[in-house]
Design a binder for these strands. Structure first.
Length: 579
DNA sequence: GCCGTTTTCGGCCCGACTGTTTTCAGTCG
């Protein structure tokens, strides 16, 4: 897969073009194509081989040639020429807040600034304020930005930011005059990581809300403050923006602030083509400026000739084309998840009893919960021997007599050992209700060995679900070196599912990979990997990933009733000798 | 550099806020 590489090089070209002050629309073309490349569910090399690159939206003849060149050589001459004409270290400067391409160009041409270190020296010596268009404040802001860059809050996992956002929102809802308040931005779109928190409100007394916001105890610093928009930095470094509008304007404001930017641009272009104008205040007729009434986002989409597009899909990743053609998929919803397929109990490294977990699951409305404790090789997690698994399953049988409408599933999370064999005997695995298999050791195998290991485990026919398939931990551990395409093919071949591990720090598979897996005919399975009853709440994050992956009920094991689920999985495993 | 209900050239999303200006450019979302 060279999709990411092509995207990165196109982004770099766009940055360099902007710094050079060339036609901004040309830069935008490269950016759009980079976006399209990231969103592509197919391998760009494959498309190149088939001569199908022009089908990618935003790719014309010129970019087609450059993609071919990058796929073949890893770079392209056009970019190499640009790098020679502009010091590529200038790109570092764009990361500073308040510094864009024009400022970078000015700094370079007037002061000879080529990199962050040059800039810091110039700013300290007070030379920035001498430059026309800059000033003392800008100089201060840049010094501050340089300082912050060293400790800056980068993108953080969705699950770690969401509680903070909800806390802030709950308290702002209490401010008099607030009519509506919603999350927006990448949080609302359920992106796996978020940079900042976007809130949008409708209020009768905006000043009061703004005052409450900027003086909130969670706020460390006010970055900008206006009548309709303010930005703050919260304690801990995360930025939060609040936009306040009138009630009538709320749907358009919510839509605009939810983004993504690319999705918005496409919608505005669409509005223009229909003699309309879309901005954050509403949808208007171009000719007389008259507002078209819209009480909700759904109405705005309808007025643009589209069905409602759910926030999770708003990435300009084909959702507008699908909406236009009436081919938006039905998406899984929280209520459609009948059970959690990966949970740990106190039998291994969890903290809660089977009974506690079962009651917590029943309280969530689940019909089943799969208890999948670790196997014996994972000694740090007090992994279970086969004998202990049998004993646990007996307890489960006993508990299950209590409920008519709910069932604990007798599962295991069996370790996939270094050579791809499984850490439990085949007869035990054949007898289980659900078998999750995961890699928990020897993370640093070379890609061929790691891929062979996982493929062998899948090919055993004894795995129902490959747990956290890439092993990544957000912000902490990169995915294992692994040929995911080969793993997806092996899962399809074996009729096994891939997990969307919903744990806040995993979200593995991620959205784009889950979408690819589905397109290869693989079913997905949602599991929180919870180690306590509180962990069951992470299912909301997993549902977000599944929706962003365009998955519907038909694509997820969790939408099957317990009876069908267990029968199907067990009959598949029956007669398999194992690895 | 792309693209077509503006259709092969001439457009390309739109507005808030800041800082440096004295009417606006740059940045950001």
């Amino acid at each position: 897969m060279k999709n990411r590489l092509v995207a990165q090089l196109f982004e770099e070209i766009a940055d360099l073009l902007e710094i050079k002050g060339e036609n901004p629309f040309k830069a935008r073309s490269y950016r759009r194509a980079a976006q399209a490349m990231e969103a592509l569910t197919r391998d760009v090399e494959e498309l190149a081989a088939q001569g199908a690159l022009l089908e990618i939206p935003g790719v014309g003849e010129a970019l087609e040639g450059k993609i071919r060149e990058i796929v073949a050589t890893g770079t392209c001459r056009y970019l190499e020429d640009l790098r020679r004409s502009v010091p590529p270290t200038l790109l570092e400067l764009l990361a500073l807040p308040g510094v864009g391409p024009k400022t970078v160009a000015t700094l370079y041409s007037t002061l000879g600034v080529q990199c962050l270190a040059d800039l810091e020296v110039a700013a300290r010596e007070g030379r920035l304020r001498e430059v026309r268009g800059l000033g003392a404040k800008k100089e201060q802001a840049i010094l501050e930005g340089l300082r912050m860059a060293k400790t800056r809050a980068e993108r953080a996992p969705l699950g770690s930011v969401l509680p903070l956002a909800l806390e802030l929102m709950e308290s702002l809802k209490q401010v008099p005059g607030v009519l509506k308040l919603s999350l927006a931005g990448s949080l609302r779109r359920c992106r796996e990581t978020v940079r900042d928190i976007d809130l949008v409100a409708a209020s009768d007394s905006p000043q009061e809300l703004m005052a409450a916001f900027t003086s909130h105890p969670l706020v460390a610093e006010v970055l900008s403050q206006g009548d309709t928009r303010s930005s703050v930095r919260l304690h801990g470094g995360r930025q939060c923006d609040l936009r306040v509008v009138g009630e009538e304007e709320f749907p358009a404001a919510l839509m605009y602030l939810t983004g993504s930017k690319e999705h918005n641009i496409r919608l505005r272009e669409r509005a223009r083509a229909r003699g309309l104008k879309l901005n954050e205040y509403g949808l208007f007729r171009e000719e007389d400026g008259a507002r078209l009434d819209a009480g909700a986002e759904e109405e705005i989409y309808r007025l643009l000739g589209l069905p409602f597009i759910t926030p999770e899909l708003r990435e300009d990743a084909g959702e507008l084309e699908a909406a236009e053609a009436g081919r938006l998929p039905p998406l899984i919803a929280a209520e459609g998840v009948l059970g959690d397929l990966h949970v740990h109990s106190a039998w291994s490294d969890g903290v809660d009893t089977l009974e506690t977990l079962a009651e917590a699951a029943r309280a969530r409305g689940y019909r089943y919960l799969a208890i999948c404790d670790h196997s014996r090789s994972l000694t740090v997690a007090r992994g279970l021997s086969p004998e202990r698994v049998w004993a646990q399953w007996e307890e489960i049988e006993g508990l299950n007599r209590r409920w008519q409408d709910f069932r604990l599933l007798r599962g295991t999370e069996v370790d996939i050992l270094k050579d791809g064999s499984l850490d439990h005997p085949a007869d035990l695995l054949r007898a289980a209700d659900v078998v999750v298999g995961s890699v928990h050791s020897h993370f640093r195998l070379d890609p061929e060995a790691m891929t062979a290991r996982v493929v062998r485990a899948l090919s055993s026919g004894l795995l129902d679900i490959l747990g956290h398939p890439t092993g990544r931990i957000l912000g902490y551990r990169e995915p294992y070196a692994l040929d995911l395409e080969a793993v997806i093919r092996a899962a399809a071949q074996a009729g096994a599912s891939l997990e969307i591990n919903a744990s806040a720090d995993r979200l593995d598979l991620k959205d784009a990979d889950a979408r690819r897996a589905r397109e290869a005919g693989v079913l997905l399975a949602l599991g929180t990997d919870a180690h306590s009853q509180a962990g069951l709440y992470d299912m909301a994050l997993g549902v977000g990933v599944a929706r962003r992956a365009w998955l519907g009920p038909q694509d997820l094991l969790n939408s099957w009733p317990a009876g069908r689920l267990v029968e199907t999985l067990r009959s598949r495993r029956k007669g398999q000798a194992g690895p």
